[in-house]
Amino acid sequence: MGMGIDIRNRLARRAAEEIQSCMVVNLGIGIPSLVPNHLPADINVMFHAENGITGMGPSPARGDEDENLCNAGGFPVTLKTGGSYCDSAVSFAMIRRGRVDITILGSLQVSERGDLANWIVPGKKVPGMGGAMELAQKAKKVIVLMNHCDKAGNSKILRECTMPLTSIACVDLIITELAVFQVTNEGLVLTEIFAPYDVADIANKTECEFIISQKVRKIPY
């Protein structure tokens, strides 16, 4: 996504702050997959994969891969103690029944109401929704990690998404390389800013209006 690893890790580190002990968390591919690297070692989290793993652990060492133990993106993973396997129906039961506390995913666009557009680039790829619709609609908290602007410099945070929607009014938190926004009934609220940016920078690069929180945190990393 044209984002350096340092910046990707900053986003992942900020997202990791949302994860508390005992949560069930589903991670999308890309930047979200970096999130576990930023969690404290003693935290008890069950990572959930749509293809039927609860309690997914890190990638195995080279040579230790098991072709039948892969994440939803098809890459080898491991299973943590206490982890389990299930079929796809049970895996999505966990999602639709509200047992997945957080899903962290990437997006093409997000609207000020939290509409998510992350499954079709018009005129280009139509890959299919996979499990994104269920996760977006039914996870207790939906966190989007994405670039603030697209390659042409256009804001990806918009009054209305111009790309086909995955799900309406589902996003709770947006984390970009510039800032963190909460999606509320009153609209977007700017709550945190990454260095070296200020509110004016963010306003310049954001298509929609937003409320500025009374206390904006300057993220210290």
Binding site: S88, S91, F92, I95, M129, G131, M133, L165, S167, I168
Partner: peptide, 30 residues
Amino acid sequence: PQGILAERIRAGGVGLPAILSDIGMDNEIV
């Protein structure tokens, strides 16, 4: 949608004609 596809297959497998779903109701393609 992935989990609904799984349930549609499951429904076929358990001898039910259909399921009710609230996933993707506002999505044109779904």
